[in-house]
């Protein structure tokens, strides 16, 4: 009877304790993502002269962009995404006296991810509509979205990417601040947000506490590739930069096609290396 009584009190304790599952420890690793830029294969730097076409050289003074929704996919059409970073501002405006910094590029701030095998990387160029509806005042000091340099109050949109510089249209060797020689692309609005899924040559294997490095390289020259004859009278596959050198904010402006094309070109201009 005594033994039964003891069993009566002790048994529930065992049951209760077995119900208390050990907390699952997530096994995670690191994926570091680096972005850098090149110009037709050469290291990209601002203030460096590059050949645009055989007749025109260009020199850039600013190149930056927002990237967003950077995530890993376990397989090609996976709807489940493992987020690496929500938004980051990538400034690649390193000058020729910052060659080391330009070579190092920009490291995104990424989150730890569950260890496993991933087969694709998704990246957004610009900001998705839900984030683009916000404004710099919504964010704390230091947040990538808190800066007023990349916000249009009149269009209620962030400027997703700035590409500024000069084209030496007349070949006199001087990059002039004039109507036709300045390059002024400030690209934004929901319509030009671009997403791309990139596939590495080998699966991305994230091991416990391990680190995988991914390198994204943007070819700035490819951003200006265009097939529309209206904007490529020379039919060299590149935007006629002497005639179309600034962005059009209004989405119903025919020139808005140029903005859309450049932002869309981020997709093809970006290569993933492991």
């Amino acid at each position: 009877m005594r033994k039964l009584l003891i069993l009566f009190f002790i048994a529930p304790l065992f049951v209760v304790s077995s119900c208390d599952k050990e907390p699952e420890i997530e096994i995670v690793g690191n994926v570091e993502v680096n972005l850098k830029a090149n110009y037709d294969g050469e290291q990209f730097m601002t203030q460096q002269e590059y050949v645009y076409t055989s007749a025109i050289n260009v020199k850039f003074t600013e190149f930056n962009l927002y990237v967003s929704n950077i995530s890993l996919l376990e397989f090609e059409n996976s709807t489940e995404e493992t987020e690496l970073a929500e938004v980051d501002f990538v400034n690649l405006s390193f000058t020729t006296d910052q060659a080391t910094e330009a070579a190092a590029g920009y490291d995104l701030s990424t989150k730890k991810v569950p260890s496993g095998t991933y087969r694709a990387v998704k990246i957004g160029f610009g900001l998705p509509a839900d984030i683009n509806r916000t404004s710099p005042g919504d964010y704390g000091n230091g947040n990538a979205l808190a800066t007023s340099t990349h916000y249009w109050a009149s269009a209620n949109s962030y400027v997703f990417s700035k590409i500024e510089g000069f084209s030496d249209n007349n070949g006199n060797g001087i990059f002039e601040a004039s109507e036709d020689e300045g390059i002024r692309f400030h690209l934004g609005q929901d319509e030009v947000y671009t997403e791309r899924i990139l596939f590495p040559s080998e699966p991305i294997v994230v091991e416990e506490d391990g680190t995988v490095n991914l390198s994204l390289n943007i070819d700035v020259k490819k951003l200006f590739e265009i097939s529309d004859i209206t904007y490529d009278a020379n039919q060299d596959g590149l935007l006629d930069i002497e005639n179309y050198s600034s962005s059009r904010e209004d989405t119903d402006d025919p020139g808005f096609l140029v903005d859309r094309t450049i932002m869309s070109n981020y997709s093809s201009a970006t290569k993933l290396n492991q």
Partner: peptide, 15 residues
């Protein structure tokens, strides 16, 4: 007026 030329002038300066 579009300002004056110099090597560091902003491309945003134009007539």
């Amino acid at each position: 007026s579009g300002g004056h030329y110099s090597p560091s002038v902003s491309p945003l300066i134009k007539p």
